[in-house]
Nucleic acid binder design. Structure first.
Length: 607
RNA sequence: GCUGGAAUAGCUCAGUAGGUAGAGCGCGUCACUCGUAAUGACGAGGUCCGGGGUUCGAUUCCCCGUUCCAGCUCCA
């Protein structure tokens, strides 16, 4: 969609870029053969391929038409049509587009001209055969340069013109394209493999969570095994927060409207909240979409001295957000979630150090979990939007603070305007899931608005009342989102400390059952989640079942082990095994649990 | 919320040119008692998503709804 005609950046000069861009023109050429009346919108190259947006009016193409489109594209490629660039003056360009009825192109051309993005006094067009499109290029020399079988139409879906839901809904056709047939098939194979790790699929297979229509959409039910993972994360957070000087609080999930009028969430974010519940005569209650106002109220419950600051209040709190139906997805986007929330109230002098400490905590968590596949986004306000509070100097000031913290820590980040919270800038950890959809996992926000709205203050050393700053932070995100990413990232294989079943005891035959159960009791006595396979299955099948469930540790018990007081310990991550005396094995397990060893990775040595 | 697609056994899916359905896995029973990824036999499971319509008859065709999937939008 980025069709600015500035000097071409490097990535646009690559052969792959030209290939994908040319294929989007070839796609449009084929589509126009089938629907001569079609109106063209944007058709850029994108990651893994290209797309083109069409307005089909009353005769849309559907999924079943893609095969024919692809056939026609191949025919165009065979014709070796040259791509010819032509510059048209502004007037000429507009006349041409208007005459061909390209209303979307006309709008875009006018915008390029009006905003001065079009440098010089011309707009460029590319023609290949009878198809001409306004386009900055570059393209292949001719359609015959498209390698054989290097592309595939992938999906067809809707998209709004200019990404604006108030404007017409267009039809977008996505294609995959690579420089060779082999790369395409490799990509397809990779994607197929990746889908095996889909948290929705694994969540069901591993019995982690379910959704039930009678309960409601976007309201997952956590099964016993999934709850183990939540509990372990929470336990870790409690320890980490205790060491970080946080204090735990507990606050309710429903609240009077008054609170959200004060915070400003009503009316600004009312659309994203569950509708209010009428209670008593004139009172309305909301399910809370976040915990902050409750924590602010705890802060405000009495006068605070500077000696108490920073005050760090934390809570794994349930929050409820009325997300749009079509955006719900597994655990990734839900309407009820449990958030690793905390609010830090501090003096202006303390802000930087506190922000730094929070970022350090993020680095610790992400480093430990080996979640290296994220980008850091510095989310700033956007002056042209009315979504943000209107306090220019505070924005500049607080954005500087956050930027400075990131710079000092040497953290690479990308700034994005318009992504801030309405009350302040934030640092977001952005992670892509298997489908390539990027979501914010964790966020840390600097808030200069709520202290005033809630009239929060503290008494400084001189006896004067001052406004504190507030940091909002959620490094472990919500259980729902974090665990959805962990499932996919780990392929469902959790480290021992988080695993629903930590040790699966597999007796070689029925005679060993009693011994196995004794060992299980011993493990459970030491608070390990151990299970014995007492089924009548073959030994091979028992191993297979334990492996399929991705149990991190299988303890195999045969006659020899019983006699020697050992276990044969098979690791999931490596398939290695080792015979270990029972007492030693217990100590090793204790160590793994204490250190939260990431033994789901093969390079982690546990013996 | 919007556009498109889908919904058949617990799961993955086949099928019926309109005459109420089948496989594999899983589950149950029995036999087997087994040393590192699937022992064998038998059996039980279905309002073919829900509601209307057309029809002698609808899982199949039409309409409406629900849910799921993909994309768009949104995302404190």
């Amino acid at each position: 969609m980025n069709q600015s005609i500035d000097v071409l950046p490097d990535h646009k000069k690559t052969q792959l870029y030209r290939l994908r861009h040319s294929l989007s023109h070839i796609l449009a050429t084929a589509v126009r053969q089938m629907r001569p009346e079609v109106k063209l919108a944007f058709g850029p190259p994108v990651e893994n391929g290209f797309y083109y947006d069409f307005d089909f009016g009353d005769s849309p193409l559907g999924e079943s038409d893609l095969e024919e489109v692809e056939r026609r594209m191949s025919a165009v490629i065979k014709e070796r049509r040259p791509f010819v660039r032509e510059e048209k003056s502004f007037d000429e360009a507009l006349r041409f587009l208007e005459e061909s009825g390209e209303v979307y192109k006309v709008e875009y051309a006018r915008e390029l001209i009006d905003t001065g993005v079009a440098n010089g006094d011309t707009l460029s067009f590319y023609s290949s055969g009878d198809f001409t499109d306004m386009c900055e290029g570059p393209h292949l020399d001719h359609t015959g340069e498209v390698p054989k079988k290097c592309f595939k139409l992938d999906r067809i879906s809707g998209s709004y013109w200019r990404g604006d839901e108030k404007r017409p809904m267009l039809t977008r056709i996505y294609g995959l394209a690579f420089e060779s047939a082999q790369e395409l098939s490799e990509y397809l194979a990779m994607r197929k493999l990746a889908m095996e790790r889909d948290h929705r699929k694994l969540g069901e297979e591993l019995d982690l969570f379910v959704q039930d229509n009678e309960v409601g959409v976007g309201l997952p039910l956590w099964m016993p095994k999934g709850t183990v993972i939540r509990d372990e994360l929470e336990k870790w957070a409690r320890e980490t927060e205790f060491l970080g000087g946080y204090q735990r609080v507990s606050t309710p999930s429903v609240t009077r409207k008054e609170l959200y009028l004060r915070s400003g969430h009503v009316p600004y974010y009312e659309d994203s909240m569950y509708p209010p519940m009428p209670v008593d005569e004139n009172d309305h209650y909301y399910l809370r979409p976040m915990c902050c106002p409750h924590h602010h109220k705890i802060y405000a419950s009495r006068l605070r001295s500077y000696r108490e600051l920073p005050l760090r209040l934390c809570e794994y709190g349930n929050v409820f957000r009325y997300e749009k139906h079509g955006s719900l997805s597994g655990l990734l986007r839900v309407r009820a979630m449990c958030m690793n929330d905390a609010h830090i109230y501090c003096t202006p002098e303390q802000v930087e150090a506190e922000f730094k400490a929070v970022i350090a905590m993020y680095q610790m968590y992400y480093g430990h979990l080996r979640m290296g596949n994220f980008r850091v986004r510095l989310s700033l306000h956007d002056k042209s939007s009315d979504k943000f509070v209107d306090r220019y100097e505070d924005w500049e000031h607080s954005e500087d603070i956050v930027r400075r913290v990131l710079d000092n820590l040497g953290i690479g980040y990308e700034e994005e305007a318009g992504e801030a919270a309405f009350y302040g800038p934030k640092v977001d950890i952005q992670v892509k899931n298997l489908m390539g959809r990027e979501e914010t996992v964790s966020t840390c926000q600097l808030d200069f608005v709520m202290p005033e709205r809630f009239d929060l203050n503290y008494v400084d050393a001189n006896g004067e009342r001052k406004r504190p700053y507030i940091l909002h932070r959620a490094p472990l995100s919500t259980h729902e989102r974090m665990i959805s990413f962990l499932i996919e990232f780990y392929g469902g294989a959790f480290p021992t400390w988080m695993a629903p079943v930590q040790v699966r005891l597999v007796p070689v035959n029925a005679e060993l059952a009693e011994y196995a159960q004794g060992l299980e009791a011993k493990l459970r006595g030491a608070f390990f989640r151990a299970e014995t396979d007492l089924s009548d299955e073959s030994f091979n099948k028992k191993i297979r079942n334990a492996v399929t469930q991705k149990t991190p540790n299988i303890w195999i018990l045969g006659k020899q082990e019983m006699e020697q007081g050992t276990v044969t310990w098979r690791r999931y991550a490596t398939k290695d095994q080792k015979c270990v005396p029972v007492e030693d094995a217990l100590v090793m397990l204790e160590t793994m649990r204490r250190d939260r060893a990431m033994d789901n990775f093969a390079d982690v040595n546990i013996w």
